[in-house]
Design a protein around this nucleic acid. Structure first.
Lengths: 220, 220
DNA sequence: TCGTGTGAAGTAGTTCACAGCA
DNA sequence: TGCTGTGAACTACTTCACACGA
């Protein structure tokens, strides 16, 4: 059961995350079973793709009733989540940082922002959305103490690389970068650059070309 | 030149946008020429990929000096930008909306947020970052009057689809959606779902698996 | 009969390798 | 000589099509 398998692509992981959210909605609506076709329609994908994605879970559906919603959610949790939960650090508590704190507050208890940092001393030592904001000097010890492995960068462009380096040095292995620069990180550290300017230029370009409704992969 | 050609992929457009930003930096630093290899290193790509991407511009480099920076920037502008500029509407002026207004303020005069909307009457009729915030009732007439074709959705999940429908009805042809739902839009409307929860789950997953430094496509 | 699971086929995207030019 | 421009090879991803089982 999902213990050992060869690498799963980024796009599959992204889609599995979408399926899980859809399944949570279906479950809340009282559905107990779902067919690949339904999930595909909700996710804007094709049915064979959904089935292929779900294959990596090793969770079998039945041809009579499709997939059992509860079991599938459990299986996704086991596959996607870190057992026991994974804390996330946020660096940069400007408008975007605050928006992220709000966005992630209470949404996924298993993957929550557990510490925030800002270089502005007037922002430090306050709490936003039940999340304490620390001064940058505390970055290393807080992250080490809480065994944080994932961090979100919402800092100005020129600060992104130095902050990323510090984070990696303290043990962070995954970075979600909102600054409009491409981060360098050593082998073994996963970086996702989520560049809003690039996304907007893409939308503007395809808006002019009458691009079909895309529903592309979210970020990278 | 670049007038008629067969469709260019989303990923190529995204990379061209990155190249342009890098070229602007290089130009500001005084560089007049650049080799595909340099650009590739800065963008975290391979040199042949950069050359192949630039092929769609129909802009020729020279084997002696590489590409002329100024000419390449002009060529990218001609290819990516709407002549005369393209206004963007923002719907939803919460923390995320404010962050976006700040992020895009003054950055690209050719693709700037020219109108913002919020359903909260206490937010309307104020200005944030020189951008006027209108009540939702004014959405259709402002967007039509300014010929806005691109919109950013920074609204709560349950409002995203209804707002998207209204935007499409008033003539918007490209949507950048930050709400964690998959938008439906008719043929000819380009939608990019930029799902931060999905991105974070992806980072958390690959952080555990020791994923190599990615530098993937930003969004979709 | 109808949906899952999956090998095989097809398509899109990337890299290779080299001809051609300065 | 060294870099661009690009056909060809390769790789990754998606879809097809069908065997199997309820």
């Amino acid at each position: 059961m999902s213990g050992k398998s060869r690498p799963v692509s980024e796009r599959t992981i992204a889609r599995l995350s979408v399926y899980r959210r859809l399944l949570n909605v279906l479950q809340a609506e009282g559905a107990t079973h779902v067919f690949s076709r339904q999930l595909a329609d909700l996710a804007g994908r094709t049915a064979p793709q959904v089935r292929r994605d779900l294959m990596v879970l090793g969770y079998a559906g039945s041809s009579a009733r499709g997939y059992e919603v509860g079991g599938l959610i459990r299986s996704l949790r086991q596959f996607l989540d870190h057992p026991g939960g994974q804390g996330v650090a946020l660096v940069g508590v400007g408008n975007l940082g605050k928006a992220l704190l709000t966005h992630f507050a209470g949404r996924r208890p298993n993957l929550a922002i557990t510490a925030a940092f800002d270089s502005d001393p007037t922002k430090a030592n306050r709490s936003i959305n039940q999340c304490r904001v620390w001064p940058m000097e505390r970055l290393a010890d807080i992250i080490r103490a809480r065994d944080v492995r994932v961090a979100i960068l919402a800092v100005p462009p020129e600060a992104a690389q130095p902050v990323a380096d510090r984070l990696v040095e303290t043990g962070v292995r995954g970075l979600l970068n909102f600054a409009p620069v491409r981060l360098r990180a050593p082998e073994g550290v996963y970086v996702e650059d989520l560049d809003m300017t690039v996304s907007l230029e893409k939308v503007a370009y395809f808006a002019r070309r009458g691009g079909a409704a895309a529903g592309g992969m979210p970020a990278s």
